[in-house]
Design a protein around this nucleic acid. Structure first.
Lengths: 203, 203
DNA sequence: CGATGCGTTGACATGCCTCAACCTGAGTGG
DNA sequence: CCACTCAGGTTGAGGCATGTCAACGCATCG
């Protein structure tokens, strides 16, 4: 059990323990020598952290909310896959996970601010709801700064992009940590938009 | 054996075969619905492609040079890891590989054009030489457009950034497909630079 | 010789970053 | 209860970097 703001594990420490998040949200981050912060991802309930590191943890894990975890030693985690099927399944899951992360980063790299944010909101919504309802209310456990450092933007740009979406009627922001996606289709359209074109009417 | 420009495998095809590159360079790419192209990576000799896809290939693989490959079925590839040690080793290699890719993308996402290019050139140099000599001559098997689509930039920006580096004496460009890194230390410094500051003198 | 593809450079527009100010809500102490 | 502080969020003004559009050089190929 970790309170908001507490550190689950530090980047650079020997990676002996694997954490499985039971409930709550976590922020994976690392600082560059010049002081900039990279936020890798925001794992939540069901996600496993501390895996992708053969020797030491790559990122510091900070609790965003109250977080409940299950701990396993790294060795025990892999030993659990005894049968060939379980092994193949484990490998497949690992591969799929890293694949998804690569996809996400690769797409983000080529997108503009508003598209990055749209992409981010959709991925949050898809994690919380499946399928996505008509007007999903997405809870944002992370600050604007966290989002900015995750998307490679500044806080101001994140705010402005959000405001623009609000002005277009795509989302509503009842309070800073909650976002209502009022037009999921339009949000999806924002993701697909080329850098050149501006938003056309939809629906 | 594939000639330059030939396709080794298509994104979307069932991923039955795993390719190990014996010699040459390959470009992994995919097109977005709007026509933009994402270039995921440029695997070379020793790299394995077609792995990260449980069901279908994620990226089309195009030969940049003459390419020699070894083919294995996906099943045979995983069956090769019989002993627990071999299995752990395989998992570790997969994890390390995807980790490195994530790192790269994550860093690129937060960097400006010139830093991205510096990063890219260094990674190419480190692949070719180990350790890096005083003035390494890096061969670029890919076009400027390939680099641009890999780094999330435009061809013009790649050219301009290169020209600026040339003007600063960091690199020399005897011909478009060859780059001499004349000041590796300065190139490294460029990578570490914060977006705000400009290049100070070094050495 | 012209056609073509790639690389490079220039002029201009625009998106994002920087710096600054202001607002709000939560916490704190009077 | 209010005044105050503080952190986070939002908005505005201005500058810089990058995208866009265009032109040109150069090599290759027919």
């Amino acid at each position: 059990m970790f309170a908001p703001g507490r550190v689950l594990l530090w980047a650079g420490e020997p990676a002996e323990t694997v954490f499985r998040i039971v409930s709550g949200f976590v922020r994976l981050e690392r600082y560059l020598p010049d002081g900039r912060r990279l936020v890798a991802s925001f794992p939540g309930a069901g996600d496993t952290i501390g895996l992708c590191a053969p020797d030491v943890y790559r990122f510091t894990a900070v609790a965003l909310t109250r977080v409940l975890v299950q701990r396993t030693t790294r060795r025990a985690f892999f030993a659990a896959a005894r049968t060939p099927e379980a092994r193949a399944d484990l490998i497949d899951r690992l591969a799929a996970e890293s694949c998804a992360l690569n996809e996400e980063l690769l797409v983000l790299l080529h997108e503009r601010a508003e598209q990055r944010l749209a992409h981010f909101l959709l991925s949050l919504a898809e994690r919380a709801f499946r399928p996505i309802p008509a007007e999903p209310v997405v809870h944002l456990p992370m600050s604007r700064a966290d989002i900015a450092d995750h998307l490679g933007l500044t806080v101001e740009t994140v705010c402005r992009s959000l405001s623009r979406m609000r002005a277009q009627g795509v989302v509503a922001v009842p309070d800073p940590s909650r976002i209502v996606i009022r037009r999921p289709q339009l949000l999806r359209a924002l993701c697909r938009e080329s850098p050149g074109e501006s938003a056309g009417a939809e629906r």
